[in-house]
Amino acid sequence: MLATGAGAVIKPLFVKGPSIGARLLVLSLLSLLLIFAGQRYHWLELFEAKASVIAAPFYWMADAPARLLRWGGDSAQSRAQLVEENAQMRVETLLLRGKAQRLASLEAENVRLRELLNSSALLDDSVLVAELISVSPNPLQHQIVINKGASEGLYIGQPIIDALGLMGQIIEVGPLHSRALLITDASHALPVQINRNGVRSIAEGTGLLHELVLRHVAASTDIRVGDILVSSGLGQRFPVGYPVAVVTEVTLDPGQPFATVKAAPSAALNRSRHVLLVFSHQERAER
């Protein structure tokens, strides 16, 4: 420490406070504490969600080149191209509206039939459009960041979908943006059923962007390549009936107790720029 005695005029250049070894010890213990606390306690997650405000400018910057490109592309389009695109979209809207009409009558019929059977009616879900602003830089983590946060009423566990199918669920709600876990993340699993016959199963992520596996499917189960898997609504996280994946491979090995079933996610997990956040009415009522 400081030179003792009257001649203590030498400025302590090198020795300041605790040694670097002690500092490392304290700080690494502190980080280990944070890591373990993050796994066990909810408050740390809440703190991290609040702290994610400081990440907002980084996401904005990281997204800037893509935005600039799109803006450039939009501005450089000729009038003829825009008119053509507009006409195309009009036709598409007309077609979709026509289909929706048929759906409306089917839905009404479905409700009547359910009333006859005395079973509860399916609830309508409302949605909110959000834009993807970042993806997790770690290839082992299948997470995306979207540009809607707590101010829009998002909540943890909220399902997100794209035009083709179920994408994942919200795991962190920040003030300005939220983080979602995709269904292909190795730590994710969701209850599904086969659309054709209603057989239930659990679809687990594998860490590969184009593959889900169904675990513990009995060898005698009626499941074929091409079967569409939809969310079953069990587990109360995802609403019923959103397409999740299409079965791509069913392997029956007599030496194994269960069949190996692989499926490809329906949603364009690595391509969708716009996603839909689903608000189920039940969740709304609770808030």
């Binding site: 502190l30 980080s31 504490l33 990440a55 997470q143 983080r179």
Partner: peptide
């Protein structure tokens, strides 16, 4: 916070 990794992960690595 920016990368969304485990809170404390990079803190530990960078301290070492």
């Amino acid at each position: 916070v920016v990368e969304g990794s485990v809170f404390g992960e990079h803190a530990l690595a960078l301290a070492v």
